[in-house]
Simulated assay, not measured.
Amino acid sequence: MESQVRGGTRWKRFALVMVPSVAATAAIGIGLAQGALAASFSVSGVDFKVTADRLEGDDLLQYGSIATGTDLEGNKAAHPVVVSGFSHAEIYNMCQSVVTPKVPFFGNITMTLNAGTGSEPVKADNIYLDVSQLDTDAEFKNIDIGVAAGEGSANGKTKMQGNATPKSNPYGFAQRAEHATLKNVEQRAWATTAGSFKLSGLKLRLSTGANECQLKH
């Protein structure tokens, strides 16, 4: 009985730490699906990693900005990011991982999300990613480099917004393209928003340790 009580106590403490994070993630997913989230918000103190075999995106718009928030110690933090916007994107074999550090009794806890691993890819409309690091093989169709950020995408379907606060200078440097193909994608990001986000074959797992997504190639 003592063993059962101790085990229950540990899981209760674990839940107190992890449930708010998981619940927030679920709420964000619902908000994204309904297009209800505002374009600007304070980012969390933890970034996340995303890998994918391939991303096909229409009406690309990229520009620099700043994502602001608070770190895990409660201090104000600002992160330089590249905001990448697409009017429509399809992502094949997507993996997203978030490491929550120093959870009592467990150490690091990793939440991993996999989707689009079968014949049906992840699909998103009006998606914006605040990216701090990107490694990929990229191909662009009808690209314009050096346009003003406020000009919008090549077809006018993607305009400057994203999650950064304050928003970027509308006359700042940006690039746009009619279509982008990104292969072997590996990126770190602070935030993602989308008007709709369909994740086929969604699988969410928790594990101990820092078990971030890795490319399989």
Rank of each mutant, 00 (worst) to 15 (best):
M1W: 12
E2M: 09
S3A: 11
S3Q: 14
Q4E: 10
V5L: 10
V5C: 08
V5N: 10
G8K: 05
T9W: 14
K12D: 14
K12Q: 10
K12E: 11
R13W: 06
R13D: 01
A15C: 06
A15Q: 07
L16Y: 03
M18H: 14
V19Y: 00
P20A: 13
P20D: 05
P20W: 01
A23C: 02
A23Y: 08
I30T: 07
G31I: 00
G31P: 06
L32H: 09
A33W: 00
Q34R: 12
A38F: 07
S40W: 02
S42C: 15
V43D: 09
V43Q: 05
S44N: 15
S44D: 14
V46P: 02
F48W: 02
K49A: 03
V50K: 14
T51S: 07
A52Y: 02
A52K: 06
A52R: 06
A52S: 11
D53F: 14
D53G: 13
E56Y: 13
D59R: 08
L61H: 06
G64H: 05
I66Y: 03
T70F: 02
L72R: 03
G74N: 11
N75W: 00
N75F: 04
K76C: 01
K76S: 07
K76G: 08
V82N: 12
V83K: 04
V83S: 12
S84R: 10
G85A: 11
G85S: 06
F86Y: 09
A89Q: 01
E90M: 03
Y92K: 15
Y92E: 13
N93M: 02
M94A: 15
M94V: 08
C95E: 09
V98A: 02
V98M: 08
V99D: 10
V99F: 11
T100C: 14
P104F: 03
F105G: 03
I109P: 06
N114F: 07
A115M: 08
G116H: 06
G118E: 04
S119K: 08
E120C: 15
E120R: 15
V122Y: 00
K123M: 07
A124S: 00
D125T: 13
N126K: 05
I127S: 15
Y128A: 03
V131W: 02
V131M: 06
S132C: 15
Q133R: 13
Q133P: 00
A138T: 13
K141E: 15
K141H: 11
K141P: 10
K141D: 10
I145S: 03
V147T: 12
A149I: 05
E151C: 07
E151G: 14
S153H: 06
K157W: 00
T158P: 00
Q161L: 13
P166T: 04
K167E: 07
S168P: 13
P170S: 01
Y171P: 05
F173Y: 11
Q175Y: 10
R176S: 04
R176Y: 08
A177Y: 07
E178L: 12
H179D: 12
A180P: 06
A180S: 09
L182D: 10
N184H: 15
N184I: 13
E186H: 08
Q187M: 14
R188T: 04
R188I: 03
A191T: 00
F197L: 04
L199T: 09
L199F: 15
S200I: 14
S200M: 11
K203R: 08
R205F: 11
S207K: 01
T208F: 12
T208Q: 14
N211M: 02
N211K: 07
N211W: 03
E212Y: 04
H217F: 10
